[in-house]
Design a protein around this nucleic acid. Structure first.
Lengths: 337, 337
DNA sequence: TGTTAGCACTTGGGCATGTTGAGTGCTAAC
DNA sequence: GTTAGCACTCAACATGCCCAAGTGCTAACA
């Protein structure tokens, strides 16, 4: 019994199953792959693999399909990330040309990734913590309602409405804008909680109430940039790849819609030394994704923000991982990683 | 042969079919509804209805299901918009409380509507054409890259990046900001194309190139507010309601993802005097939606922006129409319609 | 010890057949 | 115009059968 061959068999099973969507048997295996042994030997190997929980048989006399654990081993030890085809490489280059604002870039990126992988692609907005304050603006919408706008030097714009306790005037806002801007312009977003209180403290008593409200609004905006938003594309791919298992797509759509869930999921994925991290089936912390896998990686400054795809456990891991990695690298280059 | 009864039969068929998802036969019909006649009579009526193309039989000996035309007649002449239940009314009130910025409100609205109807809800951003310029900001991201921010008095913030032909400085931008703001502050967004060129013309020659670029960027932003964006929620409902027809959900997801398609669809829906407009099955201009219906209505200033839902042709039109109408009205009230 | 051939056994899927029941259309009577 | 009755149709379900694919095991083999 040779260990390398056993792994080779697992590899063959995974590849065939991913390709055909049908349980694969010992005979078909020796035909399609030129392992130099007979089907009986393969059967012995398969029995071993099953004992180890790497593959399973849906019923007595059917072929085997990989288990989550089997995919895991496949991803960790067997597969090697395939290089992208020239056409794919070209697609990445051409589609991400013409730099524009961050939103545009991310939107195009996520579309591209979903097309490359035929899966649902997801990208998290880059963190802003290291960004610096470029500009702020207070706009009076109603006597007690103020729009707070925060512009970072990365070009990101955050906005939100705060409610003043008492009527505010344009002059008040103008004055406060000057005070705030003088103190925080150029400082990092994640330092706001330290800096802002002192600004408020220095305000004349008549303005202090309003200043406090505005400071709180600014803090919220600075914090919002952390990881709260994401873009996705390719949900229609779910319907295509899961023609036979329409049941499972409901929960997946729910997970995607609950952005909080997805963001947690992405954030929680440890960084893998090999470049991309994979979470398979029941490894996912969210129940609805027990038949799905996530392939993700970091990008941008410090690889802090994540980009990845979501698809059925039965997916082409090597290609998918390659695509995710390539797109992430390219994205980092554009945004300045 | 009484005409009113025929309509009554159609109504019964539509209601039963929507409820049970199964073709409905003459016998079941007389049992569930107390039409004062026998099943044979109903059969005659049904034959007539079928001749007129209002209902159809999937095969010889099955019950009938409504055709698109049947639904259309049902919606136009038979159904009356049901009043919402007290619970629903309460949900609307409570969930939309706590006014915040427009984005927040729309996001909560669309979630609410999708929960109320169990369908996919879609809302178009309100037009900005009548909004006025509150503020503009130019931020230098790189020597030739400028972030242009446009803040309207409605609290809407639009941003975009433009590329200067030559290196720009902060001072240049500051100066130009002053010039632009002086001329356009307070003027309507849709007047920008008329106003901006004169500002550019008055600039000193050294700045004119940059001014032109910026003016173009501002125009683009002002125009973008028109109808380009939308929010949606409840895609998971598609999977739930269409358990048996998983085939059709693919194209629908595609349509939803192609926001352009949805926006066209919404924009093209004529305003109905009764408050909500319905587009049924093949009436939809987009092929992928041939088994879906759209129920939409306008909201906000001049009812110019649209809000609505998308679902299978087999849906509960009266309730859905009521929900859409109620939510739209409430939204108009909040945003000031 | 690992590999192989052979064989008995299991089982889901396909197919032909039979049965049932819901539903229709038609006709004749009311 | 309505109704009862009846012959007819046909999808859905059930039953039984066979086949092919696939397995596990054993005994022979290198």
């Amino acid at each position: 019994m040779s260990e390398p061959r056993k792994l080779e068999v697992l590899r063959a099973i995974v590849e065939d199953y991913v390709h055909s969507r049908e349980p694969v048997g010992s005979k078909a295996l020796v035909e399609r792959h030129h392992l130099g042994v007979s089907s009986a030997t393969i059967r012995n190997d398969m029995a071993l693999l099953e004992e180890e929980g790497l593959i399973a048989a849906p019923h007595t006399s059917a072929g085997r399909i990989p288990t989550d654990k089997g995919y895991r081993l496949f991803v960790d030890r067997i597969s090697q990330v395939k290089p992208l085809s020239a056409a794919e490489r070209r697609a990445i280059h051409s589609l991400l040309e013409g730099p524009d604002d961050v939103e545009d870039i991310l939107e195009r990126t996520v579309r591209l990734l979903s097309q490359l992988t035929n899966q649902v692609a997801v990208v998290q907005y880059p963190h802003l913590s290291r960004a610096r304050v470029r500009h702020i603006e207070f706009v009076l919408l109603a006597p007690r309602q103020v729009l707070v706008v925060l512009i970072a030097d990365t070009g990101k714009v955050e906005q939100g409405v705060v409610h003043a306790g008492a009527d505010a005037t344009d002059d008040d806002l103008m004055a406060l804008r000057g005070r705030f801007l003088g103190s925080i312009a150029g400082s990092q977003l994640d330092l706001m909680p330290q800096v802002l209180p002192s600004v408020v403290a220095l305000c004349p008593p008549t303005l202090r109430g309003l200043a406090g409200v505005l400071a709180h609004g600014l803090e919220r905006l600075a914090d919002r940039g952390r990881d709260e938003r994401m873009v996705m594309a390719g949900t229609a791919n779910l319907a295509r790849s899961n023609v036979d298992f329409p049941l499972s797509i409901g929960p997946v759509l729910e997970a995607l819609e609950e952005q909080v869930v997805m963001l947690r999921l992405l954030s929680d994925m440890a960084e893998d030394p090999r470049g991309v991290t994979v979470s398979i089936g029941r490894e996912n912390p969210y129940d609805g994704l027990s038949e799905a896998s996530v392939v993700a990686t970091g990008y941008g400054p410090g690889s802090s923000a994540k980009i990845g795809i979501l698809g059925p456990t039965r997916m082409d891991y090597p290609n998918t991982m390659a695509a995710v990695r390539a797109v992430a690298r390219y994205l980092s280059r554009i945004l300045g990683g």
